[in-house]
Write a protein that binds this DNA or RNA. Structure first.
Lengths: 134, 134
DNA sequence: TGAAAAATCAGACTAAAGTATGAGGGCTTG
DNA sequence: CAAGCCCTCATACTTTAGTCTGATTTTTCA
């Protein structure tokens, strides 16, 4: 019975050799078509437009990074700048970051230099305008 | 000659019938593959954020006036506060308003008292938060 | 692994900022 | 017209901010 079954299979394959071959070709070239389309077509871009009340959270985040690298302000300096903008004194910032007053003064001085300003109020104003703090 | 050429063609087609058929299949299914890829590929979603011209002009103006009267800050004091927020020093504010440094110090001291803060940076932060300056 | 950048700190100094007190003049309002 | 508010100014003082110099340690990166 097993043998007969096998012969039946064999007969099927032989009598339909052309169809099987065509099927294989069809399959392979379908794959080729898909690959071609993937490779050569420009990626589809679906544009989703979201209207937003101006508050500038996402946009300012993008500007944020660019302007930030532009100024060359380091992570720690940014931290100091942010606390500065909340109205804290150097002493308070020092306590909050567990460092000395000298360190905060150095950081803030560097920030002022990098932002090309003289005072902390100017630094805050410019930093907000550039979008590197919110 | 024409006839012979035609016969030659015919012979070619007959003797290569299978290859031609396979070629047609390949071509068709390549097309199918491309179509499939086009149809089924997920489009990349690009999010475009458009900021609407801010609609809260009336509202913030209202808050402005109310909070301002609440604090009891006078017109001159507000003027000083606004210049302060732009990053000017007391000396610069004095020169701009054609008054003495002492006067600006008095004004700013009054502003700090009325806003219940100690430093100019805090005053600026709070004034912006309350919407009495922008 | 060695140089550059970043973070830390100190001391000494100058410049602003902020406080406190007092005082004079202008303006409105009951 | 006196009381109250606002604007002005001064002086004296304390505190905070900011600069400069120089140094050590940590981190980062080629």
């Amino acid at each position: 019975m097993f043998l007969m079954k096998w012969l039946e299979w064999r007969f099927l394959i032989l009598s339909h050799a052309f169809e099987i071959y065509a099927g294989i070709i069809a399959f392979i070239f379908t794959g080729l078509g898909i690959w071609l389309a993937m490779k050569l077509s420009k990626p589809k871009i679906k544009v989703v437009t979201i209207e937003k009340e101006y508050s500038g959270s996402r946009e300012s985040f993008a500007i944020n990074q660019e302007a930030l690298t532009q100024t060359g302000i380091s992570a720690r300096e940014l931290e100091v700048l942010e606390l500065m903008a909340t109205g804290l004194s150097n002493q308070e910032i020092a306590q909050r970051l567990f460092v000395s007053l000298s360190t905060i003064k150095t950081h803030s001085s560097n920030v002022f230099f990098k932002l090309e300003v003289q005072r902390r109020t100017q630094a805050i104003e410019k930093a907000k305008r550039l979008g590197i703090i919110n």
